[in-house]
Design a protein around this nucleic acid. Structure first.
Lengths: 150, 150
DNA sequence: TACATTTAGATGTATATACATTAATTACAT
DNA sequence: ATGTAATTAATGTATATACATCTAAATGTA
């Protein structure tokens, strides 16, 4: 195991709370770097995957850009631009909302669903593999992260 | 407390390991959003702060760009560009390394140190405030994150 | 020495976040 | 009904990551 102290060549932390902030930032970066490798062969980014997952969860029912935004993991994501990228790739379609012409109805295409079919399997595999803690530790870690934001 | 399920409007997760991945991504985003507000008045980004901290830790001894890179929280950071931004702001200086003309000696300026003086206090305050868990829970959380990468 | 290899740093491009602003449309209040 | 406010999505700009490529300089070897 590579300690953070070693990874960033810092002798020690001011206190455990400061270390926790660094630990979160470092662990996130560690995760995301590996996620990128996973997604790369599929031609989409983790954020674009997030959008596709949201669309698939709609089970055919269209959703607006702002609703996608609200459901994203990172609330600062720019759903409008991510949607545009995915549209160019043919993974979703955009239609004018009939009841409100400001809104746009977004839904996943057959191609989008096909891409997810394989990719989701790989993501699940990756997640299972990445998290090699005991069930108990996973639950505890989830709990503590929830508490941290509490 | 806002559960992730509510925050991203997802009914449930496939399993706790999948939830943990999402939890990490979501908690990170939650943290970074608040960090950005903290740094904004100081005119530097969290990443630029990371560079300045590394330089301050050198206690006057210059350091190369690649060494900065190695010590950064996100190993994919582009230290060369971050250094350039900080140089423009007068917070660090770049000097040609006498023993190897490929390398560049970076060191923090008096202005950089002055900026850190106040900012570090605010960062410590923020961290203490952000992490409102018990000492025991902080230690446990640090441990579990370490294990996760183990 | 001469040439190939490696290393350090800079730079180009694509993607994404952060935040402000704009245009079009809808809702609301008078 | 009309003017104002609010909402939706798009867009502009700055910062940063991700990854490839380039140049200059150092290193290593025949």
């Amino acid at each position: 195991m590579v300690s953070i102290e070693k990874a960033i060549q810092q002798k020690e932390f001011k206190d455990p709370k400061n270390k926790l902030i660094v630990n979160l930032l470092y662990t996130h970066s560690y995760l995301v770097t590996q996620q990128n490798s996973l997604f790369k062969p599929y031609g989409i980014s983790p954020e674009q995957y997030n959008v596709l997952r949201i669309l698939k969860g709609q089970k055919g029912k269209p959703i607006t850009v702002s609703s996608i935004q609200e459901r994203m993991l990172n609330k600062m994501s720019n759903a409008s631009r991510l949607v545009e990228k995915l549209k160019i790739k043919g993974l979703l379609k955009r239609e004018e909302c009939p009841t409100d012409r400001r809104q746009v109805d977004i839904s996943i295409t057959e191609e989008g669903l096909e891409l997810l079919e394989d990719l989701q399997i790989q993501v699940d595999k990756f997640n299972k593999n990445f998290v090699s803690l005991s069930d108990e530790d996973v639950t505890k870690l989830n709990q503590l992260l929830d508490d941290l934001r509490g």
